[in-house]
Amino acid sequence: MRRLLTLLAFAALCAPLAQAQVHSDQETKADIERHRAMAAAHTAAAQCLESGKDAQQCMKELQAACKNLAIGKYCGMKHAH
């Protein structure tokens, strides 16, 4: 419980900092392109699974497509199973 309260307090302190960040038009355009590339990688992962390939193979392809694009090994997204 104490850990949760500490985390919530930290998040509350950081929230204004995150909102205050302003991007230039060029940075915004780069963000848009990254989001489109991540969406394309996830679409390809869905198509991979639909084709009947092994889930591990599709995950490897997703990770390769997202290298240097998103944070984490799930290309910026992770869902529950």
Rank of each mutant, 00 (worst) to 15 (best):
A30T: 09
L69G: 06
K67C: 01
Q21N: 05
A40P: 02
R2E: 15
T43N: 08
A37P: 00
G76L: 05
A30W: 00
M1E: 14
A65M: 02
N68E: 12
A18R: 06
K29L: 12
A9S: 14
A65I: 01
H23C: 09
S24Y: 03
D54E: 12
S51G: 14
A11M: 14
L49K: 08
L8Q: 05
H81A: 10
F10K: 06
Q26S: 13
A80K: 14
Q19H: 13
Y74S: 15
C75I: 07
Y74Q: 11
A64P: 02
K60M: 09
N68R: 04
Q47H: 08
L17G: 15
A46C: 05
C75D: 04
A64S: 14
A64R: 07
A70I: 02
Y74A: 14
A55H: 09
H79N: 09
L8W: 03
Y74W: 09
A12C: 12
Q56N: 10
L4Q: 09
C66E: 00
A40E: 15
K67G: 03
M59E: 10
V22T: 13
R2K: 15
E61N: 09
Q19L: 15
M1F: 08
M1V: 10
Q21R: 14
E61A: 15
E50L: 14
A15N: 04
A12P: 03
R36S: 07
R2H: 13
A44H: 07
D31A: 12
A20G: 15
V22Y: 00
I71E: 12
G76V: 06
T43Y: 03
H79T: 11
E61R: 05
A12Q: 07
Q47Y: 01
A11K: 04
D25F: 02
E61H: 03
C58A: 05
